[in-house]
């Protein structure tokens, strides 16, 4: 499939053509993605505050400090808890709603549009709006609770509750995306299987448990891994709503990375954290590649 005419006329040019075509993209990727990986690794072995003229090599000192700091283990713990709470809630709700939407034609389109909208909306706006919603004194949630005769709840000031608010915001934002992916997965299930299940008898709940859930498993695996990877990179909502507070109760890994790197300007420590986060996420991504590999096999 060599382009024949120009290949015959300008053999040299023809051989260079594909390289010239990929050159712009490859340059961007090398300069802003691949070199930075090497640079982060290098910086993580050095001590630097962004200003001093030298950056002495300190070996594994940055990693030792990181792994012995309460801050890191707290951020890792909070991030893992956030992922463990929010991902199952998101996927469970999304599958239930998607399995309803996939069968209804017109109402589904209206509802799908509404549910999908937050996932393309500015995260900062959403975080600001929910900050107001959950504000202690003039927020809508507390106003509602008060009409029920209940007291004000300090949602974002309570270390126990703040993380749950972040889970709610994240679910509200991402649910539509999960639903759209689930709908695509559900549409791939042959109708005959539902018909067969109906013939065998059994309520909607039974069909859902015995047919829908197992057959949509490949989509669930995909969403599971994608949303765990995403949960590990959460930053914006936290930065706007709580900045990691109160008392570190919502401090996630990327928020710590931003703080160490760009407010404390501890470049070495920040890079070590970036490398650790990178290793974690690459491990998850490779796991995803394996799982998706199995999925292809499963469908074939």
């Amino acid at each position: 499939m060599e382009p024949c005419a120009s290949g015959a006329l300008f053999p040299m040019l023809s051989r260079l053509t594909p390289y010239l075509l990929v050159l712009p993209l490859i340059s961007f990727i090398v300069v802003f993605t691949y070199i930075p990986i090497a640079a982060s690794l290098n910086l993580s072995f050095r001590e630097w505050d962004f200003l001093s003229p030298t950056m002495p090599f300190v070996g594994l000192e940055n990693y030792r400090l990181l792994f012995s700091s309460h801050e890191f283990w707290n951020a890792l713990r909070v991030t893992v808890i956030f992922a463990v709470i929010s991902v199952p809630i998101r996927l469970g709700l999304a599958l239930l709603i998607a399995s309803y939407l996939v069968r209804e034609a017109l109402p589904a389109r209206v509802l799908r549009g509404a549910l999908f909208l937050p996932s393309v909306t500015s995260t900062v706006s959403i975080a600001v709006v929910f900050s107001w919603l959950f504000a202690t004194d003039y927020g809508m949630v507390n106003a509602f609770l008060q009409t029920l005769g209940l007291g004000k709840v300090p949602w974002l000031q309570d270390p126990q509750l703040a993380l749950w608010v972040l889970v709610i915001v994240n679910t509200w934002k991402q649910l539509g995306y999960d639903i759209v992916i689930y709908i695509a997965g559900l549409q791939a299930i042959p109708q005959e299987l539902y018909d067969a299940a109906a013939v065998d008898g059994g309520g909607k709940a039974r069909v859902f448990r015995r047919v829908t859930v197992p057959l949509v498993m490949p989509t669930t695996y995909f969403l599971l891994v994608v949303s765990v990877i995403e949960a590990f990179q959460i930053f914006t909502v936290v930065d706007v709503m709580t900045q990691g507070g109160p008392a570190g109760a919502t401090d996630m890994l990327v928020n710590m990375l931003y703080r160490v790197g760009f407010t404390l300007f501890d470049i070495g420590q920040g890079s070590a954290l970036a490398v650790v986060l990178f290793a974690l996420l690459i491990a998850l991504a490779l796991f995803k590649a394996r799982v998706l590999g199995r999925r292809v096999h499963y469908e074939a």
């Binding site: 390289y19 993605t33 930075p36 990877i229 990179q233 470049i267 970036a274 986060l277 490779l286």
Partner: peptide, 30 residues
């Protein structure tokens, strides 16, 4: 086009989908 190194370059492009952008935050700033 099929060209020497093409597969490798394509793999390098696809791999960016797996690479979290936070690893390049500090280096790109610098």
């Amino acid at each position: 086009f099929r060209f020497p190194g093409g597969n490798l370059l394509f793999a390098a492009v696809v791999a960016t989908l797996m690479i979290p952008s936070h690893i390049s935050l500090i280096p790109n700033y610098l």
